[in-house]
């Protein structure tokens, strides 16, 4: 399912956090490309810069310097409003702690990104329900997140990420808060998405996750030190 088109094209990316008197270099001259339909795992020790890279790739933060093109758009130089548009049209986020809004129903959580795009409420609900069906949770649409198990919450989060038909699915330790059996089920879901042609970048410590990826990128001290293609 992999194509030659670059969904992610990062060149010389640098992120420096300025504190009162010191500068912390979180990423230094990082370059990478992710092809359409590719499943990439980013691994590294804590503090290596992998989360910073994920936030930059997710348009939640802007780099200090460098180029970041997502689906042909130069994200690195965008203003805040344009970054919001990119997040709700091109990027689907899956977080370790699910990040569902407790007061909203499962259906409302999943349709949330669509509501910021100006889609009619009824259309948003139809699409959200379709997305929930894909992860096998349409029967839980009216429940609150507190009524779901960890695995179900993560599947809802995946449904929310998929509802906008994103160019790139980003996942931050998607199995980190789940037991091994539930984690396996979530990974199988990611593999299904991969087979369906989704481009996926996962940040993980979990070797099982990394093994299922097409390619594993290792980060250390803000630099990419290794990029290996899994057999």
């Amino acid at each position: 399912m992999e194509s030659n088109t670059n969904i992610v094209d990062v060149r010389g990316l640098r992120k420096v956090y300025r504190e009162t008197e010191t500068h912390v270099v979180a990423l230094d001259n990082v370059s990478l490309t992710v092809h359409g339909g590719e499943f990439v795992a980013i691994v590294g020790a804590s503090g290596s810069g992998k989360s910073t890279l994920l936030h930059l790739l997710g348009a939640l933060d802007t780099p200090t310097s460098g180029v970041y093109e997502l689906n042909g758009k130069n994200v690195a130089t965008m203003n805040d409003d344009d970054l919001s548009v990119v997040r709700r049209t091109d990027i689907g986020f899956v977080f370790q702690v699910f990040n569902l809004i407790g007061q909203l129903t499962v259906l409302d959580n999943v349709s949330l990104p669509l509501r910021y795009t100006g889609i009619k409420d009824c259309d948003a609900e139809v699409r959200a329900l379709e997305s929930l069906t894909r992860v096998g949770l349409s029967h839980r649409a009216t429940h609150l997140p507190s009524q779901l198990s960890g695995g179900e919450k993560q599947r809802v989060a995946i449904a929310r990420a998929l509802v906008i038909e994103p160019a790139l699915v980003l996942a931050d330790e998607p199995t980190g808060n789940l037991d091994s059996q539930t984690g396996c089920a979530i990974l199988e879901l990611f593999e299904t998405l991969h087979r369906d042609g989704h481009t996926i970048v996962v940040v993980t410590h979990d070797e099982n996750v990394a093994k299922r990826a097409d390619r594993v990128i290792t980060i250390s001290d803000g630099n990419i030190v290794r990029s290996e293609v899994n057999a």
Partner: peptide, 16 residues
């Protein structure tokens, strides 16, 4: 705060 962060992450603008 967390809800605000989630809403921003899924595409809400500052104005929204």
């Amino acid at each position: 705060c967390k809800e605000i962060g989630i809403r921003r992450a899924v595409g809400a603008t500052k104005k929204q």
